[in-house]
Simulated scan of single mutants.
Amino acid sequence: MELVVARIGRAHGIKGEVTVEVRTDEPELRLSPGAVLRTEPASAGPLTIEAGRVHSSRLLLRFEGVKDRTAAEALRNTLLIADVDPAELPEEEDEYYDHQLMDLDVVLEDGTEIGRITEISHLPSQDLFIVERPDGTEVMIPFVEEIVAEIDLEEQRCVITPPPGLIDDRAEIASARDAEAAEPAEKTEGEKSGDDA
């Protein structure tokens, strides 16, 4: 099975290093020196990682044969793809690979359908599920213990307990607040005109 493990960003310095947007929970395994990765577009690769280091909380990689800034910049936005055995599981019990979570049905504890996971965004602070609702809109669900109550791979579902406002229609909440805020303002104007009379 093919998995996108990173996207190449800007060139860093003049010796061929690039920043990468990591898309795997196991960068030390997938993006270690010696790893050979296919690319999208295919014409950019395959690429062999020569060295890697963390700089200002960003992962920097250098590939064999990429020796200067011009060659590094030419790789910008290239996706790095690893071959992974579909039966392979992460070492930790409550960890999952992205491909295991993709297309899971997202439901509330009472069974109410929210949508399905179409993308997983790996941010520095936490991971986010991008969930497509039945009407085609998207909602972002933080992949944290307080919100994601259960991942059931056999049933292909993700049970969530979202806090108020996370999946509600925010427009309605905002308009209700606006209406409440407007009422006292109208009263004040009425009181002022009463004083003038």
Rank of each mutant, 00 (worst) to 15 (best):
K67M: 09
G34A: 08
E64A: 10
R76G: 05
E50L: 14
G115W: 05
A74L: 11
T118V: 15
T78L: 04
L128S: 04
T188C: 07
I81T: 09
E183H: 13
F143Q: 01
I114D: 05
E2Q: 10
L80Q: 03
L80E: 00
E189D: 13
K192W: 14
G34C: 06
E150D: 12
A51F: 08
P162N: 10
A179I: 13
S56A: 14
D196C: 07
Y96Q: 11
I49R: 00
A72T: 08
I81P: 02
T78G: 01
L3P: 00
L79P: 05
G9T: 07
I120M: 15
T78M: 01
L31N: 01
I167E: 01
R7V: 15
V66E: 06
I120D: 01
A179Q: 14
T24G: 02
K15P: 00
S43W: 13
L47T: 03
H122W: 11
S32M: 09
Q156I: 03
T118G: 13
I130H: 01
A72I: 14
T137W: 07
D135W: 13
L108G: 03
G165N: 12
A176F: 04
F143I: 06
I14A: 02
L61V: 07
E119I: 00
L29Q: 09
F129M: 10
T39H: 02
S57Q: 14
V20K: 00
L123S: 09
Q156R: 15
L80P: 03
G136M: 08
G13A: 05
E93C: 01
P33H: 08
S175L: 11
E150S: 02
H122A: 05
R116I: 03
A71W: 04
E150I: 04
V18E: 03
L29T: 14
D178H: 09
P46M: 00
A6E: 01
L79E: 05
I160G: 02
R58T: 13
H55M: 05
F143G: 00
D195P: 06
I14K: 10
E132K: 03
A197P: 13
G165E: 10
G52I: 09
L108E: 12
V18Q: 02
N77D: 14
E146R: 06
K15H: 10
I117M: 08
E138D: 11
R10W: 12
A42Y: 08
E91Q: 10
G16P: 03
E191C: 07
A197K: 08
L29W: 12
V36I: 14
A176I: 11
L47P: 03
L31E: 04
Y96G: 04
R62P: 08
I151K: 01
T24L: 03
D68P: 04
I14E: 13
E172N: 03
L61Q: 03
K192T: 09
P27H: 06
V159W: 00
L47H: 02
S175K: 12
A197G: 10
R10G: 05
V36E: 10
K67Q: 11
E150A: 09
P162I: 10
P86Y: 08
G16D: 09
V148Q: 02
L75M: 07
V144H: 07
V66R: 00
I151H: 02
F63I: 08
G111S: 05
R177F: 15
R7I: 13
R58C: 07
S125K: 14
P27M: 03
R133C: 06
V18I: 15
P27G: 03
S43Q: 13
E50T: 02
D168G: 02
E95M: 10
E93P: 04
P142F: 06
I49W: 01
E180S: 09
E172K: 06
A35C: 12
